[in-house]
Nucleic acid binder design. Sequence first.
DNA 1: ATCAGACTGTCTATGATGTAAACAGATAGC
DNA 2: GCTATCTGTTTACATCATAGACAGTCTGAT
Lengths: 254, 254
Amino acid sequence: MGVVVGMGGRGERMVGMDEVELPRVLAQLWGVEEGRSRPGPKPAFHISDIARAAVRLADAGGIGAVSMSKVAAELGFTTMSLYRYIDAKDDLYVVMIEHAFGLPPELPPEQDWRARITLWAEAFRDGLRAHPWVLHIPVHEPPLSPNQLAWLESALHAFDGTPLTPQDRLSAMLLVNIYVRGTTQLTANMATDPDEAREADRRYAERLTLLATPDRFPGIAGAFGQQPPDETDEFSFGLDTVLDGIQARIDRIR
Amino acid sequence: MGVVVGMGGRGERMVGMDEVELPRVLAQLWGVEEGRSRPGPKPAFHISDIARAAVRLADAGGIGAVSMSKVAAELGFTTMSLYRYIDAKDDLYVVMIEHAFGLPPELPPEQDWRARITLWAEAFRDGLRAHPWVLHIPVHEPPLSPNQLAWLESALHAFDGTPLTPQDRLSAMLLVNIYVRGTTQLTANMATDPDEAREADRRYAERLTLLATPDRFPGIAGAFGQQPPDETDEFSFGLDTVLDGIQARIDRIR
DNA sequence: ATCAGACTGTCTATGATGTAAACAGATAGC
DNA sequence: GCTATCTGTTTACATCATAGACAGTCTGAT
């Protein structure tokens, strides 16, 4: 069992563990950072400081407010100092998400799967609402970081006690995950300022009424003509529909 | 009924119609471009040429391959010439999506809602698979362009004949829309080259096995341990679950 | 105690990028 | 023909991600 540092296929810096190469970020997040003392000056800060600063910037000004130089400035260091801790901007996104979400909620085992996955979904939604910029981060690869996997694992456990197969649980989890992401993206208006969000909604309704006239787009006109339902109700209403679908699948097995 | 050109709230160039201001892109897409002859040289090309060139670039090299200068070069013009047709990069995205998707499929009225929305979902999925970069475009505002609204309208009509209220139909449509986007994003591996996609899948499985050990993450290990199901089956399986949920809602009304 | 080598933060530099401003030529209606 | 307006182009700038070289700092081996 050795540790090797080298370059991966796409020119990434890699840390080898047991023959399997991991990008440095993942190795760091999983705590593979060997604690042994090494020559050279002590690091002035830690990858988590970077995450904290970046999340602070993103919470305040959206993902566009996060740049290597701005994060570095927030920490009081030069831009290039960040590269001693993080190999690339994409890796910064990984640690940001990891830091913003933390660990998933505890799911009470005494409740049924429906209550549990609902709890999970609401916690996920709350996380996304608190950090809407997460939805603007381009996803290139499936999750491998500790907290992300913990959330995944947590959701899968919500289906304990059901007759669903492991793959079924994965599909079901995916469905709920997708649903929460999707509605939050469309519902929680993507503006940093709430006033601006309200204004954007108003403008959208105005333009839609202008363009989607009842003669050309009767369906749209009908659906948007009424007043919009409460945001939270809308969420659980849609989620219930998804869960009804999963329930139907369970019933079909039994 | 007059037309006014001015500046909107966020400094956008606007074209006023009936008191409601529209960003120039939307006005162009909706064909408000007054055909009257004007002084000055004739435009060398059209907004749709830009869309075509940009889509070509994105299809070949992903959304990252689309920049104002690359698109301009593709057309044989200078970068800045594009700004005579398009106000900003975000507007380019709008016309790209509009051009890439075109009109929605015709939904056969003689079939039931389930067959119709399935057809719609599959067409949408096919569009996303043909132009995966669409999923990488940051969405700041809800859709207002002609083809996008046509797709929306089309999906709503799939529920004709059901007892669902207009809002219910909107929720149901949203659910299907979200589902297709979500699965496609996670399923259709986001690499341009299929070989590279397979390689990425292999690497992911490898790393997941390393990190998500059965003792720490039994759920994940169990779900990913088996071999992955066929992509298309997976799609319809999940979609059926969503539709079962909608069916349950219909049943509850009846 | 010394010292080589590894590691630190910084400085400088490069190539993209999105877009503003000023410009010279083209053209339609007067 | 004149003038206003529109065209594509040139030049310019701020921002960005990141590579490379550098001088100082610390540790472990000698």
